[in-house]
Design a protein around this nucleic acid. Structure first.
Lengths: 115, 115
DNA sequence: CCCGAATAATCCGGGTCCGTAACGAACGGA
DNA sequence: TCCGTTCGTTACGGACCCGGATTATTCGGG
């Protein structure tokens, strides 16, 4: 398993996947993508504060992104009972499926790249 | 040069690059990315009509995206003198640099993926 | 020469997101 | 108990983008 993408291949991959995302609609912003993947790739628990620090954005940005992602049922929120000031961001079944689908899309496009 | 990205590696790459794009600001929408890369990866000439067909979106979407990309000096527009109804979209130095930089970013992140 | 077809731009109403500031709830040490 | 601190949300004003309809310009066949 060698991971060597030359610049042209990288850009072609980026182009193809974005094209497919635009076609299948429901595209998220870069920030929303970064937040969603952080939640599904990094170990929990995730908080608003932690995500804001990791992305170097303000907390309202995270809150609003979670509103949007929550409306799409890609993530959910729960109060931390140990410290009720905190909000724990949780994964959902629909979110896991969407992330998995994105991974498949990227993998499929990578396979078809010119050598 | 084998191009084999497993799903987890694909997602990690997607996450890392989006994170970096958010950090360095000036993020574009999926549509704008798709349009920009189409212009720089596929052979010219490019027209509004052609881009609209390729992306399966309406022409106003292309016009507005070109307004934005033009304001950022990533592309420029010129009337086709042979058929003055057409507009030819041209590349710019700044755009070429930005695309090249994106390619480098993706390539660099791909190199650092877990095996 | 004229009129229909084609092309890109513009207009309009509506929605989403941003950054900053302010707010309410909850915690914890004095 | 009190008060400063922390945490997440909400409010406000502004900027950007969308979809669909409309407009202005240009081309080309009859």
């Amino acid at each position: 398993m060698s991971i060597e993408l030359r610049a042209l291949q990288s850009l072609t991959l980026w182009h193809d996947v974005h094209l497919e995302l635009v076609h299948q609609g429901g595209d998220l912003s870069s920030r929303q993508i970064a937040i969603l993947l952080t939640i599904y790739l990094e170990p929990p628990p995730h908080t608003v504060r932690g995500l804001a620090a990791k992305l170097k954005v303000t907390k309202p940005v995270i809150t609003r992104a979670l509103d949007t992602l929550g409306k799409l049922d890609l993530v959910s929120r729960r109060r931390d009972e140990a410290d009720r000031r905190n909000v724990i961001i949780q994964r959902t079944v629909a979110g896991a499926l969407a992330v998995e689908r994105l991974g498949d899309t990227i993998t499929a496009r990578a396979k078809e790249l010119p050598r």
